[in-house]
């Protein structure tokens, strides 16, 4: 269970997130939508403790993320996978080492087991032969899939996807969404997905939140989204512009 309570973040005195409160029950999948610059990625980074808010708390399974010491936060992060918007692959490591990195950090498996897990992940993202290549040799879609493999290789119960299909062609986007769907159905992960591809996340998320200019405008289930009259939600959900709504 992830709970966000009254989170506010200021940037040079100006609020970029205002009093955000929401909760993500275990096993549920939240879709975080909204215009660019609304604070979605920032909220995700606050939830996993990478950015400290000016006000408010974040608890994951009852643990206050900002009260944990170094060892406790490390333990918590072993339970969280994150796919970054800009891939964030380590450019000084090849693909296999990138995917193996969280497993080596965890230190539970031997090198043979790690190699087997890495190959298993490469097979699952349909890139079985690129382990020796470096990130700068890959296309955007391949980087996303490698980044996905790195995020999920330790089989974390919580995964955050920050715009997993940004800048990708429709075929690669659908492959990524299939991977996300498999994570939900086969592993039962709790997830938060930021995406501008509404059609894509409709299939993988059961709850949706809409942020606009740092404020949580809407938060509810798919049925609630479909029945709401809030114009910004309708615009996003149905893909209309202001003019078309009249």
């Amino acid at each position: 269970m992830i709970e966000v309570h009254n989170v506010t973040k200021l940037h040079f005195g100006r609020p970029v997130l205002k009093d955000i409160t929401l909760s993500i029950p275990e096993g549920s999948n939240l879709g975080l939508i909204g215009p660019g610059g609304a604070g979605k990625s920032l909220l995700l980074k606050i939830i996993c403790g990478l950015v400290v808010p000016d006000e408010g708390t974040v608890t994951i399974d009852g643990q206050d993320v900002f009260e944990l010491d170094e060892i406790e936060i490390a333990k918590l992060r072993f339970r969280i996978g994150m796919l970054f918007q800009n891939y964030a692959l380590f450019d000084f490591m090849n693909v296999a080492d990138n995917i193996a990195f969280p497993l080596r950090q965890e230190g539970k498996l031997g090198e043979d087991e790690i190699a087997a897990k890495v190959q298993e992940q490469l097979d699952s993202v349909d890139l079985p032969t690129i382990g020796h290549q470096f990130p700068n040799e890959l296309s955007g879609g391949m980087k996303k899939r490698v980044s996905f493999a790195r995020a999920v290789v330790p089989e974390p119960p919580i995964v955050f996807y920050d715009d997993p299909t940004a800048g990708l062609d429709p075929v690669t986007s659908s492959k990524i969404f299939l991977l996300l769907k498999a994570m939900r159905d086969e592993k039962g992960v709790t997830s938060v997905t930021i995406s501008h591809d509404i059609e894509g996340i409709k299939d993988i998320c059961d709850n949706f939140a809409l942020l606009d200019r740092g404020e949580l405008i809407f938060w509810g289930s798919r049925d609630e989204v479909e029945s709401t009259d809030l114009s910004l939600v309708r615009q996003f959900w149905d893909g209309f512009s202001d003019d078309e709504l009249g």
Binding site: C48, L50, E70, I73, I80, F84, N86, A88, D91
Partner: peptide, 17 residues
């Protein structure tokens, strides 16, 4: 450049200081 490309955040998410 590792900071601006979120690689440092990725390190922290993998529990590396």
């Amino acid at each position: 450049s590792m900071v601006v490309t979120e690689q440092v955040d990725a390190l922290r998410m993998c529990a590396a200081q």
